[in-house]
Design a protein around this nucleic acid. Sequence first.
DNA 1: AACGATTGGATAGTACTACTATCCAAAGGG
DNA 2: CCCTTTGGATAGTAGTACTATCCAATCGTT
Lengths: 209, 209
Amino acid sequence: MRISELSERSGLPVQTIKFYIREGLLPRGVASAATRAEYDQTHLDRLRLIRALREVGNLPVAAIRRIVEAVEDPAVGLHDLFGTAQYALRPRVQAPEDDPDWGAARRDVDALIAELGWQVTERAPARDLLTQTFVALRRLDFTVTPDDLRPYVEAAVALAEHETGGLAEDASRARAVRGMLATVLYEQVLIALHRLAQEDASARHFGPS
Amino acid sequence: MRISELSERSGLPVQTIKFYIREGLLPRGVASAATRAEYDQTHLDRLRLIRALREVGNLPVAAIRRIVEAVEDPAVGLHDLFGTAQYALRPRVQAPEDDPDWGAARRDVDALIAELGWQVTERAPARDLLTQTFVALRRLDFTVTPDDLRPYVEAAVALAEHETGGLAEDASRARAVRGMLATVLYEQVLIALHRLAQEDASARHFGPS
DNA sequence: AACGATTGGATAGTACTACTATCCAAAGGG
DNA sequence: CCCTTTGGATAGTAGTACTATCCAATCGTT
């Protein structure tokens, strides 16, 4: 198919498709002449992947490029594939240098992870994300005790085990890619359901006005 | 204190503080002369609130304005206060008009919420967020069964109950404000812990390279 | 009283991201 | 043969959150 048909079938403007090609998210079509190139189902599938990661996963274009490069590189192992996707997730947090509050919170985060025995790299962005939240909570005079965290840890462990468990056997590359996708998309499911459950709980406890 | 001291103590540039005043996030200082105004602890507290909502909660400035207006308006009830914060959360999803996939997914979302018996308004943004995710999952050939959702629903219910339960008695306004804050900030705790637990599970199942 | 620094207030500019519009020459098709 | 489409390049736009500059009126100090 030509680019106009790809545009129709994907629902994306031709200009956007050209933009994705320029940015390295989508391979060029097979050129049949100087001004003619052929696209196929793989391009359509890729566009669906891009849109899911962009719209639902809220990933920046640069991160999606890194992900599709990792997917296409057979030398990248399954665990690294997960890591590439996970480390690309937003929000990205910039750790300040020379902030004593940050340093203290970061030590608490590292201690928590060590105590739980989790295998997480030192440079995992989620460490910074949690650190940032601890800092903000303390600045607002919330104390964060292990007891406060326990329900969240339990939920996180249960869900992560559930998500990864299904992929444990027969960890083919194709499955790994789908698992990575599920990781990104089901995080949004969790967020949405959590918000809905909160609204319900708030309605029951405080009553609608 | 003058604005320069407020700037020092909050760690924010004077220009940013002026910007927040212009945008209605921070009240003006008490003018003692044409070119002199006095700021106090309440301004510092407000700045901490603003930074927590902006950096950690990732809320847009316009949403923070709506929130602080609701906090300061005694006519706004506790449940509405929660709602104002929750409905301001990102990501905001724009429902397309005339998309059959969207319509079908939206009906599933509504049915799910009805079946769970949750009290959630028709216009809750989280409905659209969940709908969008369902659409993307299906376009990528993931089927989403009630069984797939159960672990997420269970986790969401447990956490929401835990979060709201602590506030049920003595629901003073000050507590409601803090509860609203906790809602926003603990969502990030959940996200961060979930990602960390996923990395750990991935490391254990697929091994680090 | 003089004077350099600070302040409040207004206006304009910047950085980043993700597109979106325009242009052009070279095919392709009826 | 000519009108449309295409690939490819370049430039422009929209939204968000700041950030920089300017100006005149003080303030504190001398």
